[in-house]
Write a protein that binds this DNA or RNA. Structure first.
Lengths: 267, 267
DNA sequence: AAACCTTGTCTCATTATTTGAAACTTGGTT
DNA sequence: AACCAAGTTTCAAATAATGAGACAAGGTTT
């Protein structure tokens, strides 16, 4: 009878959590039930349990559920321990200052691009909204670059999961076009986003590769067609490559600092 | 044999997740086992399940577990839907620009202060590391202000959980001193951090209260004793009060925007 | 090399928990 | 007063979690 979710009760509960998060807005129990595979009392108990555990938050006034505050706490630990962000931080600070454009750091999470960090060179506002945000792999600079240097089997798996929604006139809309693009990127060593996701937005992206050639993540410098063009972005290749190599080297040597005191640093 | 955790298998698994996060660094199975209440195979299976589910990440080289990347994705949804951050964003942007100092937005999470957002007026770097960070309630400006306007029973519960660790010479080190301070704050309408958490760091904090007087969160402006003093910070009271009121008002009227398309905005 | 740890993984009968059809409650609507 | 939708509870059957103990894989000492 095993459902697709697997991993017993815990897996099922987390699947419910994902469903709530996927709504992108606070959701009523009945809405959740309508699109759930579980019978009413089962779903009900999961939602209750998750709410008790503060993994979901219940708004009694509107009778809605949303992902809970406990996740924010846990994610902070994840971000600092399981992503490239703490290692890359000084390097992308420097990169952003040098190029004066927006810089992104991303990793691959299943078949999606997960944005891990961002520097907004000019305007320091509106940043948090991006860490944790996901984007499509087939039409972003960082996504294509990470795919280009992944194992063939991983590429197959990821491509199979892409929707190939046509965001702009430049979006690649099928697997073959994407595979050609990946071959190009592999021979160049870097890739572009040619207004494939948003009109007027272009970027150049560089993979972060371990010594063994494994994909750790990717960096990108984003700009607009008003300010520059692809040839202009190409001028950033040396500093991007340099930054990516530094991050990869630091990741190699990284061993977690031993903490004795927990509350040592202030806010 | 009901443990303190409650909520069946799911609760237990999440408790394990908390334990891993609490280490603050990647942790080996044996370390986890040493401080766990569960027998070896039980803990083992939980860790396996959580790793399968990407709630934990396993580093095969070092044989360690850390909170996983899936949490970062989930937390983004939580941050946007279950915190004041999206509502407060434009207001704290404006506040930060006006005062030229660091601004924090916090909420109460159990007995701790959870930092939700931050603006670093001068230097736009190193920001993400703060969202999701937790701090003590009894010796931070935002913590004391939120407590001061909470229900008596909540205050009792929170105070009972404080450690009253003496961070500096100014830290309040017992419940009575804290209760006096809370009474002061209540009559003033705002509070200070008088180098109670870190030497040289001072702040002024303002509660964000709903129409009914319920605590929604708190704002603070932080500075150093080199740059200013408490009297100087007190000059920010009008703009702080104004900002807090605007956030509270927006929170009242907030109904989640209906999304039809998910991928409408670019990165 | 052999004996001996330490750390991590697997087995399986027992036990406790999850499961979901159906019944019930609550609040709003015709 | 009858009706309907959304949410909550019950309880026997089905299933999954549990953990003592055995086993495997490295490493270290004698």
């Amino acid at each position: 009878m095993g459902h697709v979710t697997g991993d017993g009760t815990v897996g099922k509960a987390l699947h419910v959590l994902d469903q709530v998060a996927a709504f992108g807005r606070p959701v009523r129990f009945s809405e959740l039930l309508a699109q759930s595979d579980y019978p009413k009392p089962t779903l009900y108990r999961f939602v209750q349990t998750l709410t008790n555990q503060q993994m979901l938050a219940y708004d009694p006034e509107r009778q809605t559920y949303a992902p809970g505050i406990r996740l924010v706490r846990l994610a902070h630990a994840a971000w600092e321990q399981s992503t490239l962000a703490p290692i890359a931080r000084p390097h992308i600070d420097a990169l952003s200052a040098a190029v004066g454009e927006t810089v992104h750091l991303a990793q691959l999470d299943n078949a999606q691009v997960l944005y891990i960090d961002k520097r907004n060179a000019g305007k320091p506002v509106q940043m948090y909204s991006q860490a944790g945000k996901v984007g499509p792999a087939y039409c972003t600079g960082v996504g294509k670059v990470m795919l280009a240097f992944s194992d063939a089997e991983d590429v197959d798996r990821v491509i199979a999961q892409q929707s190939f929604h046509k965001f702009t006139g430049h979006t690649l809309t099928d697997a073959d076009a994407l595979r050609e693009e990946l071959a190009d990127i592999r021979s160049n060593g870097y890739g572009f986003d040619r207004e494939e996701h948003e009109p007027g937005i272009i970027c150049i992206a560089m993979p972060i590769l371990s010594e063994g050639g494994r994909v750790l993540g990717a960096l990108s410098v984003t700009s607009t067609t008003n300010r520059t063009n692809l040839a202009g972005l190409e001028g950033y290749v040396p500093i991007l490559r340099d930054t990516a190599e530094k991050i990869a080297r630091d990741a190699q040597n990284w061993s977690f600092p031993d903490y004795e005191t927990k509350e040592a640093t202030g806010i």
